Amino acid sequence: MRNVPALVLVAHGTANATGQRTVLQVRAQVQRRLPGVRVVDAYVDVQLPRLRDVVDSLVREEIPTVIVPLLLSTGYHVEVDVARAAAAPLVTAAPPLGPHPVLAQILRDRLAEAGATTSDPVVLAAAGSSRPGAALAVQVVAERLALLRPGRVTAGFASATTPSVEQAIADATTEGRRVYVASYLLGHGFFHERLRRLDARVTAPIGADRRIAELAIERYRTAARSFSTRPVPAFVA
């Protein structure tokens, strides 16, 4: 496995035990599908091991490494933390998961599980970022979700930018219909718990859906091609 690029799945990190399990479940799914690859988890905040420590360890072992952010859009952690780690020798980084079209498909499924009909108004609730590209990426996902269901879809943000989730809910509320909030978060944690306190029906987070593991593998395989002399392992279904 020494010549095979390692895969570092980097998540934000959370103190919520359920949210922590989500990342470990995604890692386990990826590892099952890539049995010949060293797959490790790392975090940019709250949890250990930190991304930089994991990458430094792999660099010392002279193992080529692909960082795949389990993050749903660009933002500070992608543009700073991941970019700094990827500047090390033999290291490259894939883009974040969003706004890949599969995310809208998962969100549609979470809405259906929560009981939303196709005519119910929906607020796509994202964590938010001060980086301008992040809000644009969320809007792309909202537009893709709207193509999958005829009801109205509006983006809202829990922090850093506008409109807030609360304002988006107020704007989307129509007489006789309760708004559904599609949690555009990977797992349970600080922001999802805030959403659950809102006066709206809130979906489960995206979670350890098999499609997330498959997307992470797609990101890995594409980025690993930059190590042209290194074999890229086959995907195991």
Results as ranks from 00 to 15, higher is better:
138 V>W: 05
150 P>K: 13
126 A>T: 06
53 D>W: 14
30 V>Q: 04
131 R>S: 08
11 A>R: 01
57 S>D: 15
154 T>R: 12
8 V>L: 04
106 I>Y: 03
2 R>Y: 06
196 R>N: 09
213 A>L: 01
52 R>D: 11
128 G>A: 14
104 A>N: 12
80 V>W: 03
145 L>S: 12
24 L>W: 04
34 L>G: 02
228 S>D: 08
207 G>Q: 01
139 Q>F: 05
214 E>N: 07
20 Q>I: 04
8 V>S: 03
74 T>C: 11
190 F>I: 09
194 R>Q: 14
137 A>E: 13
35 P>S: 09
234 A>F: 01
56 D>Y: 01
124 L>A: 15
231 P>I: 09
184 Y>P: 07
39 V>C: 11
208 A>K: 01
67 I>P: 06
16 N>D: 15
54 V>M: 10
45 D>H: 03
86 A>H: 13
208 A>R: 02
79 E>T: 10
110 R>M: 11
179 V>Q: 05
181 V>D: 08
65 T>I: 04
105 Q>I: 03
14 T>H: 07
71 L>T: 09
125 A>S: 12
4 V>I: 15
169 I>S: 10
178 R>Y: 01
233 P>H: 01
8 V>F: 02
128 G>C: 13
130 S>A: 14
174 T>E: 14
119 S>N: 11
230 R>K: 06
172 A>C: 02
15 A>D: 14
31 Q>N: 08
201 R>M: 13
106 I>R: 00
111 L>S: 08
39 V>Y: 04
89 P>E: 00
171 D>G: 12
180 Y>V: 04
214 E>Q: 06
159 S>G: 12
54 V>H: 10
89 P>Y: 00
93 A>M: 12
126 A>N: 07
